[in-house]
Nucleic acid binder design. Sequence first.
DNA 1: AAAAACAAACCGTCAAGTCGGTTTTATTTA
DNA 2: TAAATAAAACCGACTTGACGGTTTGTTTTT
Lengths: 194, 194
Amino acid sequence: MKWQQRKSLETQQKLLSAALACLERDGFHNFRLDRVASEANVSKGALTHHFSNKDDLLAHAIEKVLDEFVDALAHGVDEVHAGRLTLDGFLDLMWLHMSGQLYMVTLEIALKARHEPSFRTLLTPQVQSFHERIDAIWQQLFPHLSPARATHLMNLSMNLLRGMGTQSVFRKDAPYFNDLLNGWKAILRQQVAS
Amino acid sequence: MKWQQRKSLETQQKLLSAALACLERDGFHNFRLDRVASEANVSKGALTHHFSNKDDLLAHAIEKVLDEFVDALAHGVDEVHAGRLTLDGFLDLMWLHMSGQLYMVTLEIALKARHEPSFRTLLTPQVQSFHERIDAIWQQLFPHLSPARATHLMNLSMNLLRGMGTQSVFRKDAPYFNDLLNGWKAILRQQVAS
DNA sequence: AAAAACAAACCGTCAAGTCGGTTTTATTTA
DNA sequence: TAAATAAAACCGACTTGACGGTTTGTTTTT
C-alpha cells in the first residue's frame, strides 16, 4: 500500500492540472473529458476511475485553484508583516492572480453553478471557506482598522479586481489595467490613513 | 411591402427577447434553440428563417441588450443635467442595470467569445462602439474634469460594478451590495471634488 | 489470487442544422 | 378585378455528429 497510493495521487494531480488547463483554454462550454485525459496523458478510463463524473472532476479542480490563491495571499500578508512587501505590492500580488488562470476558471465555474443547483450545492462549502479565509487575511493586513472596515475595503478591492479580470477577457491592455490599479492604490492608501 | 415587414420585425423581436430570457435563465451552456423558439411561441423553422444560426441569434441579442444599457445611461445623464438626478442616483441606475439581466447575459457571451475567435470578431465592433458610447456619456457627466480623468473614474466605477455583478452570482445580499455602492459613492464624490 | 490502475470499445442521448413542404402575402398580367 | 405567379413566412421531420457514461478487458501491484 505505498506505490499504488503514490501513483494514484500523482495521476489525480495530473488530471486536475490538465482539467484546469483545458478549462482555461477551451472554456467550460467546450470542456471535454477526453481532452482532459489526453492532456494528462492518461486514458479516459483512468479519468473515470479517479473521478466519478464531470462535475466531480470540476469540483476538485476548483478546490485546487482556490486553495492556491488563498495560500498566495496568506504568504503575501506574511511578507507585508515582515516588511518585505508593501501594500502596493500586496495589491499587485492579488492582481497577478486575478488576471491569470485563476479568475477565468472561477468565472467559468461560477456561471455553471449559477444554472445548476446540484453543482452549486457541491461548491457552496468551498466558496464559503474561501471567502472566510480571504476575510481573515485582510483583517491581518489592517490590524489597526476595525474588522468591519477591513472587510469593507477588502470587498471593494476584490470586486474592482474581479471587474478588471472580467474586462480583460476583451481588452488585452496591461498599461491600462496598471493605471487603474495605481489609481485604486492611491485611493486605498487614503482610505486606510483616515 | 408593409404587412410582411412588420410581421417579420415583430417575430424577430420576439425571438430576441426569448433568447435573452433563455440565456439569463439557462445560461449559455444550456442555451437551446428549440427552447428559444417555444419561448417565443414560434416554430424552430421560423427561427432558422430569421437567424442563420445560433451565433447569429446571440450576436443580435447582445446588440439589443447593450443598446438598452447605453440608452438608459444616456437618459440618466440628461436627468442629471436637468437636475432631476444626483450623481448617487446615476450610480444607482448603473447598478440597477449591472445587477439585472444585462450583466449576466454579457458575461455568458463574453466567456463564449473568449474561446471562439470567429464569434469574438463578430462581436468586436459592437463592444467597441459600446465602450465609446459609455465613455462619451461620462465625459458629459463630468464636463469640469479632464476627459482622461473622467474616463479613469468611469473605468474604476464600471469595473467595480462589474465585479459586484459577478459576485452577485453567488451572493444574494442586497444590503451588502448597497453598502459597497455607498462606500464607492463617497469615494467618488471625494475624487470628483479634488 | 485479489485488487487496483489503466485502456479502449461501445452505446444512448441530444441538439444544431438541413430540407422539402405548406400557408400567407405581394405583384404581375390578362 | 381576378387569376396567375412570385416571394416571403413558417413548419417540423430527419440527419448527422458529438460527447458522457458504461462496460468489458488487460496489466501491474500486493
